[in-house]
Amino acid sequence: MHYDILLRTILAFFVLLILTRILGKKQLSHLTFFNYITGITFGNIAAELASEKDIKILEGLISLVVWTGLTIIVEFISLKSGRIRRIFNGEPTIIIKKGKIQQQAMSKMRLNLESLLTMLRNCNVFSLTDVDYAIMETDGHLSVLKKPDKQTVIKRDLNIKGGRSILPTEIIVEGKIVKKNLLELNISYQWVYQQIRKAGFNSVNEILYAELENDGRLFIDKYENKTN
């Protein structure tokens, strides 16, 4: 009985190795959501072939080969037709355009502001004011293009000695003041209200996002569907 499991495991291993080589590097890199789902299903079939005694070896092999064949066919058709490729793979979505958050795109992607800020930090971007464009790729990763004046510059090129960096901090997120950040920065509510009034806003509820910059300025991004 143990020999049967051993045989199944060895067979599943080599079949999986061969078929993944046939599928190619694109499948392994999970470039699209379709690739990701295909990879998971492919692995599940191989795992069941190796461990489930109720599944005949021939049936498992047929499932793997058929799944591989269907994946190759879909990829081939996608290469020939841009419309079909968009159906299976989706399209990149612009989340930030010319420094402005695209709220409709975020709603469509079911992406909240906190998640966007986390993804930006993963791209070594700690301030929205640095971003010219941010694009959600088909694999779920965020690509960021910084503004020309925010491109990376080596301090040595400018003869600047290393100094203390101040991290840009969220002050208002989705119409609500972040209290703990005010306490950490020793900033009063009165100062925040003064700044938003100077910017032409009557209420915090009109502001989608505001952050304190390194130079003490308050960057403000308003809601698209709300007027002053």
Rank of each mutant, 00 (worst) to 15 (best):
D4T: 15
I5E: 13
L7I: 15
R8T: 10
L11Q: 09
F14R: 02
L16R: 06
L17V: 12
L17R: 04
I18D: 08
R21I: 08
R21D: 08
I22V: 13
L23Q: 03
L28M: 13
Y36G: 02
G39F: 02
I40L: 07
T41M: 11
G43D: 03
E48Q: 13
S51F: 15
K56C: 11
L61K: 05
E75M: 06
F76M: 10
R83Q: 10
I84P: 01
R85I: 04
R85W: 03
F88A: 00
N89Q: 06
E91G: 02
T93W: 01
I96K: 02
K97N: 12
K100R: 12
K100D: 09
Q104W: 05
Q104P: 07
A105V: 04
A105F: 03
S107D: 14
L111C: 09
N112F: 08
L113C: 07
L113T: 15
E114W: 05
E114K: 06
L117R: 11
M119H: 06
N122W: 13
N124Y: 10
N124Q: 15
T129I: 14
Y133W: 08
A134G: 03
E137W: 05
T138A: 05
V144D: 00
D149G: 04
V153W: 01
R156V: 11
D157M: 08
D157F: 09
G163I: 02
P168A: 00
V173P: 04
K176C: 08
K176W: 07
I177T: 06
V178K: 06
V178F: 05
K180L: 12
K180M: 10
N181M: 04
L183P: 12
E184A: 13
I187L: 14
Y189I: 13
Q190Y: 12
Q190K: 14
I196W: 01
I196A: 03
N202P: 07
Y209A: 02
Y209W: 04
A210T: 03
L212Q: 00
N214V: 12
E224K: 09
K226P: 07
